[in-house]
Write a protein that binds this DNA or RNA. Structure first.
Lengths: 210, 210
DNA sequence: TACAAATATGACCAACCAGTCACATTTATT
DNA sequence: AATAAATGTGACTGGTTGGTCATATTTGTA
């Protein structure tokens, strides 16, 4: 948590600090990111930073929180729109892609974060993954009951497949030229279709005789 | 490339240097790995290391080469045993898993390597990925002609799915207890089955009417 | 044994890092 | 205007890093 002093700052100055931190943590993972570089780009003295934050990790966690709050907010209306399992997944990943295009800095910071090896940070990543796993599993069970998904599949394996592909999908679009967006969204659809045909074929349900 | 001096070393000493480097690069990615730690664990002087290698990167690339040579050798007879596309993939990933269990240090170094952000190293990763992509695509096209795989699928998307899942599969098994090996191998089979049913159902070929 | 070539050494260097602190400056309160 | 509180500052500390180099030791050769 930042200190009170940080919140008392004038907006322009506070934004400069945040912006400089965003840029640095987007460029480098936590351990290699440099506080000296951040304060230099923010145009403040080294000591000032320690008036705002307890230490490097405090600053980092604040930035991470901003990023994930923003992403959660961006994705909030993706779920529960309808009950189509496959359509929901496609909305989710396409929207996650659009987030990456719209907020490239946030996107890069998130990538750097979940690749972090730092013990304390790593625990948060695992917690987060388990949280998403239970969300996904809930959706999956519902879809199995609805008859959208083959109910004989291993739930763990199904989550694993979607987690892997989703992670790589999001990570993959670093070149975020807006012109290619349509092509990228189509690619996401192609990839998810491959998974969908494996998880159950709508209308045909090819698994029933298995 | 190591200097001649390195190869002139007595086996015991050379192995000590290699072993210390392996342990350090397994523990930390390139940038955070410490030469000082390596020389200390190897029981040699700092200066000696620079008699053997030009610099840190020279040492690292030598270690990386060892790792990948070893892995390539370990996986060499996986392909071309038979023409069953899905069986070959399963052999590949199960064997890659066994490699990880058998050579945990090598395994960890490989993971750290392909997560590296260093420009020069990153290029090698991309090259490597493209090489595997063309290998995979060749197999895929063959399987499409054989009727094992739905020929209407996007080849890029198909590779992407296998690449993502394969990468995460290999990365995932860090707790490499030999007792759980059977369970892990079964999990790999479950995951690949999900993909297979999406790429085409053997015997049934559910895509033909699509 | 005498010389030369190869190899080993660790103190040392400059560059960087996160974090500190005595002090200067600005802002709020009386 | 005078005082107090809050905020800003950058030189400095102790640590780490990759890399160097003059010198010492070992090894090979004659």
């Amino acid at each position: 948590m930042p200190k009170e002093t940080f919140f008392n700052l004038r907006d322009i100055k506070r934004d400069r600090v945040v912006q400089a931190a965003l840029e640095e943590f987007a460029k480098y993972p936590y351990e290699r990111a440099s506080l000296s570089t951040i304060v230099q780009n923010a145009g403040i003295a080294k000591g000032s930073m320690y008036q705002y934050f307890a230490d490097k990790q405090d600053l980092y966690l604040y930035i991470i929180k901003r990023v994930y709050d923003s992403k959660r907010n961006y994705l909030q209306d993706v779920f529960a729109k309808d009950q189509d399992f496959f359509a929901t997944l496609q909305r989710y990943y396409q929207r996650a892609y659009m987030f990456a295009v719209e907020y490239p800095l946030y996107h890069q910071i998130a990538i750097n974060f979940w690749e972090s090896k730092d013990d304390k940070l790593h625990q948060e990543i695992i917690d987060n993954k388990e949280l998403r796993a239970s969300d996904f599993t809930r959706m999956l069970i519902q879809a199995m009951e609805d008859g959208q998904v083959n109910p004989n599949l291993s739930k763990e394996a199904a989550f694993f497949v979607y987690h892997s592909v989703g992670k790589e999908l999001i990570e993959n679009f670093q070149g975020l030229s807006a012109e290619e967006a349509e092509k990228h969204l189509e690619f996401i659809r192609d990839v998810l279709d491959i998974l969908a045909y494996g998880l159950g074929r709508k209308g045909e349900q090819s698994w029933v005789k298995n």
